[in-house]
């Protein structure tokens, strides 16, 4: 919710001051969530892209709009970092499960209310495994004399075929195995499955939701009635 609350003003206004306020307001959260160090790492990864955004906007717009848009990128980066670094995919899956609309859609499409959230968590989980596989495939093909960075552009793209095909097949084979493993353990089970951890909205959660709603409403209202200057 807070993510949306930050995104709405960040995308509505291209103003340096708004961005600075949004960025600063998230800093304490980074420290509370103890992800400041990892956030700094993702910032470092974003340096090149923010530099690019700055340069492009500097030449197509003005200095201040370039600063504002670069800051906007950093705000988005920070918001998403904060969200994904503090929220485990499992919790997110559980939360999705509690949303009526998701359950309804899931039952409608897939015939089972938990299927959609399960698909989401499974997909997120397979990413690190697939990354390990990718490294192994690259190693295996290099051991057969494959040189990825050899030849012209066309040749280089072709060089990736021996990497992509095994990887794709591994992913497909793994999903089929996973499906069989799930079925042999009784998936999807009966309606009304319970979970070990029940997510419940408590006082602070309502406070966050309230703050977020106020932020969204105020931003939209200001956007409709005033023109916020870039600087």
């Amino acid at each position: 919710m807070l993510v949306v609350a930050v995104l709405v003003p960040a995308l509505l206004f291209a103003s340096v001051w708004v961005m600075i306020i949004l960025l600063l307001s998230q800093l304490p959260l980074l420290f509370i969530g103890r992800v400041a160090r990892r956030w700094a790492l993702s910032l470092r990864a974003g340096v090149f892209l923010s530099g690019l955004i700055f340069v492009v906007n500097f030449f197509t717009g003005s200095l201040f709009s370039a600063i504002a848009l670069t800051l906007r990128f950093l705000v988005l980066l920070t918001t998403f970092s904060l969200f994904f670094m503090t929220t485990s995919p499992d919790d997110l899956g559980l939360a999705l499960d509690r949303i009526g609309a998701v359950r309804w859609l899931s039952r409608k499409w897939l015939g089972y209310p938990n299927a959609l959230s399960f698909t989401f968590t499974t997909a997120v989980r397979l990413v690190p495994t697939l990354a390990v596989d990718a490294q192994t495939v690259v190693d295996a093909q290099r051991s057969r004399g494959l040189e990825l960075d050899k030849g012209n552009l066309f040749r280089r793209i072709r060089n990736y075929i021996p990497i992509l095909i095994p990887l794709l097949l591994i992913a497909i084979r793994r999903s089929l195995e996973l499906a069989e493993a799930l079925e042999s353990r009784g998936f999807p089970g009966k309606e009304g499955r319970t979970s070990l951890f029940q997510l419940k909205l408590k006082g602070p959660d309502y406070a966050v939701i309230a703050v977020s709603v106020v932020m969204i409403v105020v931003s939209v209202w200001v956007f409709l009635h005033y023109r916020v200057p870039v600087f």
Binding site: T136, V137, D139, R144, L146, L169
Partner: peptide, 20 residues
């Protein structure tokens, strides 16, 4: 690695990592 691969042949454990 490509240069060494001519002398040193390394066969990986899982064939699925190299068949394509």
């Amino acid at each position: 690695v490509a240069h060494l691969a001519r002398k040193v042949g390394l066969v990986f454990q899982n064939p699925d990592h190299l068949l394509f």
